[in-house]
């Protein structure tokens, strides 16, 4: 590197530093759609009302074009005996748990994407293929997704599923809150199909109020907890139950948004690109001085 003198070194360094700093404002805010509207919609799942008919499973599959047996096949209650999870073939499933109050009437709990208010998947997705919209839904964009499955790693509820057996175009499969149906002014398929309206669809704010009213009016019927009101910073889908949520296999999660720590670290490292640029400048300085010293040594010798 003899042909290069110190001045050109300095000049180029400065140019690069300025260029990097210039990039800052436009890039620091790059990210997916993540809107937390006060008017976001949600669903209140009252597990004390649910009868485990699994009509929601059928309606969901039908609405999403997934393979399903006819509705009357769902009268068979044997699948409830086994713990199931939403997967690429079923975006929602109903699980059954022992009822300490009424042994003959087991508790049934519908499971699907919770549509978090601060979704870990949205924060995690490498290309911003998952977005939280103003109407509460957390939806996945097939045109962006690269199939890295980081959303599945990030999700605290273990909801997103992946089509592992597709060689081309495998999809991330999860409840999309019936994005298309709702855009057409319809209810989510599961909510529409529920015979006992264990699923109440409405503005999340209203639902939380209704849930509180129900608990207040029937303190014997419910435990005093709305799951999803505060968990991981709140979820658009909330649950009421007559027994401890732990015994219904709801994950015990903190009240902080799931992406919180990760994002603060991330934004700490990249605070307006200051740390990387400073490091660059520092290393440049070190390089320059060490070379300077080296050159002087050479000149002296």
């Amino acid at each position: 590197m003899k042909s290069q003198n110190r001045r050109s070194f300095l000049k180029t360094s400065t140019a690069i530093t300025v260029a990097a700093t210039g990039l800052t404002p436009s890039t620091a805010h790059a990210g997916p759609t993540n809107i937390l509207s006060p008017d976001r919609m949600g669903v209140l799942v009252d597990t004390t009302v649910c009868i485990g008919c699994r009509n929601c499973e059928w309606a969901c599959k039908t609405a999403h074009g997934l393979e399903t047996p006819p509705l009357d096949a769902y009268e068979d209650r044997t699948p409830l005996a086994k713990m199931r999870r939403p997967d690429e073939t079923a975006l929602t499933v109903v699980n059954q748990y022992e009822n300490p109050k009424e042994p003959d009437l087991p508790i049934t709990v519908k499971v699907q994407c919770m549509h978090c208010d601060h979704p870990a998947c949205v924060s995690a997705c490498i290309v911003g293929a998952i977005a939280k919209h103003a109407n509460g839904e957390v939806v996945w964009d097939t045109d962006k997704c690269i199939g890295c499955r980081y959303c599945m790693v990030a999700c605290p509820f273990q909801v997103p599923a992946f089509e592992y057996h597709k060689a081309l175009g495998p999809r991330i499969m999860k409840c999309d809150f019936c994005s298309e149906r709702r855009a057409d002014g319809k209810l989510p398929a599961c909510v529409e199909s529920c015979p006992v309206e264990a699923l109440t669809y409405g503005r999340r704010e209203d639902l939380v109020r209704i849930a509180k009213e129900r608990i207040k009016r029937s303190p014997d019927r419910y435990v005093e907890h709305i799951y999803g009101e505060a968990e991981v910073g709140g979820t658009s889908w909330c649950y009421l139950a007559g027994t401890d949520f732990d015994s219904l296999q709801f994950p015990k999660l903190g009240l902080n948004p799931a992406p919180g720590v990760s994002e603060s670290i991330q934004h700490g490292i990249f605070a307006y690109f200051v740390p990387p640029v400073s490091l660059y400048a520092l290393l440049g300085a070190v390089m320059w001085t060490s070379r300077h010293r080296h050159d002087e040594e050479e000149e002296q010798s």
């Binding site: 004390t48 009822n99 109050k101 009424e102 009437l105 508790i107 019927r221 007559g242």
Partner: peptide, 8 residues
């Protein structure tokens, strides 16, 4: 009224 929980 009975559902999953006995409610007066």
């Amino acid at each position: 009224v009975r559902a999953q929980a006995r409610v007066p």
